[in-house]
Every structure is written in structure tokens, then in C-alpha cells.
Amino acid sequence: MLRIRCPYCEEARSEEEFAYAGEAHIRRPEDPEALSDREWGEYLHFRTNARGPHREMWVHAAGCRRYFNVLRDTVSYEILDVYPIGKAPSDDSTGNGA
């Protein structure tokens, strides 16, 4: 059971209050119609599935309902960073930085 610090409620809350919302920093293509089927398929279906530090989105579903980014180690489950949507990652050591 994770404890996640909500950057908006400004305190650590229990995992039950949150929902996972997929990999972070995946921008929707500006002009989908300009993409090939393969490129659109990459956006739809392909994810980094990192072993180790991984940037992902969570939503504070039972709390303030805000989405935010989490840098979490998928091996140790340690949460290394929490930061708002729209903020660039503090470093790009992971495979899925901006």
C-alpha cells in the first residue's frame, strides 16, 4: 500500500484515495490526421514499461480530484518525486521524460 504525497493537498495520503492514470508526459499529437497509422498506433498503444524509475500520472480520486505526476521506482515502489502536470521532469534519467 503506497503512501503518496498529493502536491495539492500537501500531505501524504494512502493509496486508497488515488487512482493510477497511466504513463506521464505522453502528449497528444497536435494534428492526428497528419500521422501515419503506425505513428498514431504508437501514441495509442506503446508505453515504456520501465523497470526502475518511471514517470506516471496519478489522480487524487477521493481527495481533490487533481491529476499529477509521480516518479516511482517500479522495482522498489519508492516514490522519488511528485510534481504538477505541466512541469517538466527534474531530470531525464528515465526512459519516459518529456
Partner: peptide, 13 residues
């Protein structure tokens, strides 16, 4: 509702 908030907050703030 979660779907609307996802797009509103993350892609179209």
C-alpha cells in the same frame, strides 16, 4: 467525469 478531468487538466489546461 474522470475522463473529462483528465483532458481538462492534463492536455488542455
Amino acid at each position: 467525469f474522470d475522463w473529462l478531468e483528465l483532458w481538462r487538466q492534463t492536455e488542455w489546461p
